Simulated assay, not measured.
Amino acid sequence: MSESNSSGGLTEYINHHLTHNSVQLVGDGALGRFNLDSWLIALGLGLAFVAWFSFFARRATAGVPSKGQAFVELVMEFVDGQVKDTFHGDRRSVTPLALTIFMWVVFMNAMDLLPLDLPGWLIKTFAGEEAMHHTYARLVPTADLMTPAALSVTVFFILLGHAISAKGGWGFGKELLSAPFHAHGPLAIVLAPVNLVMNIIEWLVRPISLAMRLFGNMYGGELVFMLIAGLMTSWVTLVPGVIANAAWGIFHMLIILLQAFIFMILTVVYIAGARESH
């Protein structure tokens, strides 16, 4: 049964589960708030991914691979194949980036499959029932806008690095002022501000679209799980609630993988575009 029976209704239950364990660093607004739960869980999952793949990489054999090694090789071959089909330059730095993004986002998204009330149960077990109602912990880092935004901003600076590396600082700056309307003479000077504005918008849209797509899907999925939990507050609706929860969980597995794949492949596409000239 769900906690919502004892927490004062479904609305209070959802509000509790949508509240982060956070500290206010600057001012009073949301932008100055640091969500400890998202950061700690994302960090732990990232370290788990590195430890897992490093373990099998160090113990890789040329003969018949173990099941763990075979799975790691399968994932790496899949990611490298996607990068090869999308990016036609030197993949030595792009493939590891794509692999890290894909697996890290999968790990963070998969936290949505854990029982919704698991943090509350752990807190109640080890700290008492009173602490459960005053302690907050959200399990899905990608359902926190700050996490997809941080990933997208990082990708944005990586894109800038690739663009400058491929075209040089002068070439990249010249492209910002000359594309997409390639003009000559006095007309080029007139159109330069227009080109600059359009290129700035194009560059800013990339991280915004990456962040909002991932956040929107994971936040929506998390909210659906919370709404389904409301069906489990009564013995009358318990069975439909269990069935709906199982069905949504199975469908959500596809969303988890698909959103990680989209984030990865769009990053590679953007890198390829950043290295090409207009």
Rank of each mutant, 00 (worst) to 15 (best):
V75P: 03
V106I: 12
G46D: 09
P96I: 12
P193S: 05
W170G: 10
I14G: 00
I228P: 08
L177Y: 03
S93I: 12
V236Y: 10
M132E: 15
A188Q: 12
I228N: 02
D37Q: 04
V236P: 03
R213P: 01
T233I: 15
R213M: 15
T233H: 10
A260E: 03
F102I: 05
V268A: 05
E129H: 02
F181K: 00
S2G: 06
G128L: 02
T147E: 03
L214T: 09
E129W: 05
L113V: 09
A70P: 10
L113G: 08
R91I: 11
A179L: 04
N109R: 00
L254M: 12
R91H: 07
L97Q: 07
A70H: 03
K67I: 14
V242I: 15
S178T: 15
V94D: 06
E12F: 06
M226P: 01
S54P: 00
A211P: 06
A183D: 12
F56E: 07
L139Y: 01
V155Y: 11
D80A: 14
R275Y: 06
V105S: 09
A149I: 13
G169S: 07
L43S: 11
D144E: 13
F78L: 14
G171T: 08
L10F: 12
I14P: 05
S277T: 13
E129I: 07
V205I: 13
A188N: 08
P180R: 08
S38N: 08
F53N: 11
D144H: 07
L151Q: 06
M76R: 15
V75G: 01
A137K: 05
H16W: 11
F157Q: 01
L223E: 09
I255K: 05
D144S: 08
R138H: 07
A42L: 07
E129D: 14
V269P: 02
V79D: 00
L191Y: 01
M103F: 10
G44Y: 03
F215D: 01
L97I: 13
A51N: 09
H16P: 00
Q24G: 04
W39I: 14
H20N: 11
M76P: 04
P240C: 06
A110T: 05
F102T: 03
K84I: 02
N199R: 04
F56W: 12
Y136V: 06
F71P: 00
N21V: 04
E129C: 00
T86A: 08
V50Q: 13
G68W: 11
V26M: 09
Y219R: 14
G63Y: 11
L118G: 10
M253Y: 08
M253W: 10
G249M: 11
A127L: 15
S4Y: 13
G68N: 11
I14C: 02
T237A: 10
A246E: 15
T233D: 15
V242F: 07
A60G: 10
T11K: 12
A51L: 09
M146F: 13
S152L: 02
I250C: 02
D117I: 04
V140Y: 06
S152P: 08
A192E: 10
A62N: 15
T86E: 12
I200W: 02
T267F: 02
I101L: 13
L43D: 04
